[in-house]
């Protein structure tokens, strides 16, 4: 079985700042990994490198055995990486359904002539796309909200719609940037279950950035800890919990002896 994702020595330099410093990671298909680290540790920058939004300054990224670093972002998406954003970035003036149909349409492009003449083939495509979009909405608990403008959805619905839109491009790897940000414990628990369910049902690998340790520890199989752009630790939740370097990075060296449990309680 080939690896889903392999990043080797990925670095990103902004002027004098090395935002991501030789980060390497590998994921198996259908795995759930998490990237954690303090604010400004370079987590989102790493995502941007993986999706080519800002191409890495050095290093190589392979997806399913093909090299993708520096490809145009839309080609990276076509290879199967989809993402969500820390500050939700939906198409605010499109309806929820249309938001998803944009993603679906990329996989099933319509021809200009077909669209103009409304040929039977075109109509069949449109019907299929719409049905699939409605199914996705229903799947993520957004049934009945398809005809609302994205900007008018509630915060939690927007988060889920963003995930639905990412799924609509039929990715093999889903990057979630703080999916549970700003959610209370009940909501973030539901989000956790949703993420696990998506992995099971869609068979995608998931890489997530998250600050809520409860979520991270609960569903991740592997955790990568970034600090100042450097990957200071990687391993299973249990290993990370016990890693003194991680605790030092999070709480400062003095608090290290209180352990990760304290942190989890705070979160």
């Amino acid at each position: 079985m080939t690896e889903l994702l392999r990043a080797a020595g990925v670095s990103k330099r902004f002027g004098g700042l090395l935002a991501v410093d030789r980060v390497s990671l590998a994921m198996a298909p259908g795995a759930i990994h998490a990237v954690i680290g303090p604010n400004g540790a370079g987590k989102t920058t790493l995502f941007n490198c993986l999706t080519s939004f800002t191409p890495p300054s050095a290093g190589e990224i392979w997806l399913q055995g093909a090299r993708i670093d520096g490809l145009r972002p839309d080609l990276v998406a076509a290879r199967g990486i989809a993402r969500t954003y820390q500050n939700i970035r939906l198409f605010p003036d499109l309806t929820a359904l249309e938001n998803i149909m944009v993603g679906l349409g990329v996989r099933r492009p319509e021809t200009l002539l077909g669209a103009l003449l409304a040929t039977p083939a075109h109509r069949a495509t449109v019907a299929a796309v719409e049905a699939r979009a409605r199914a996705l909405l229903l799947d993520l608990g957004l049934g009945g909200r398809g005809d609302r403008l994205a900007r008018h959805l509630s915060y939690g619905d927007q988060r889920r719609l963003e995930i639905a839109r990412a799924l609509s491009v039929q990715p093999v790897l889903l990057l979630l940037d703080e999916p549970a940000a700003g959610m209370n414990p009940v909501e973030s628990h539901a989000m956790m279950e949703l993420i696990a369910r998506i992995r099971d049902e869609h068979g995608v690998g998931i890489l997530l950035i998250e600050h809520q340790m409860r979520v991270v520890m609960g569903i991740s199989e592997q955790i990568h800890v970034l600090d100042h752009g450097v990957c200071i630790a990687a391993g299973t939740p249990a290993q990370i919990r016990a890693d003194p370097a991680v605790i030092a990075a999070y709480l400062g060296a003095r608090a290290a002896k209180h352990g990760m449990d304290a942190l989890e309680k705070r979160a």
């Binding site: 999706t51 939004f53 145009r72 972002p73 839309d74 080609l75 998406a77 076509a78 989809a82 993402r83 954003y85 970035r89 939906l90 198409f91 605010p92 003036d93 499109l94 249309e98 149909m101 944009v102 993603g103 349409g105 990329v106 996989r107 099933r108 492009p109 319509e110 200009l112 669209a115 103009l116 409304a118 075109h122 495509t125 449109v126 796309v129 839109r165 990412a166 609509s168 491009v169």
Partner: peptide
Amino acid sequence: CAWRLQHSGIGRRWLAVREDEDVAQALGIN
């Protein structure tokens, strides 16, 4: 023609690019 285009996948892609170019590209839109 304009009406057909606007309400087709092509039109939706235009709208997506108008709303947020970066996100549209990250969804695989050329």
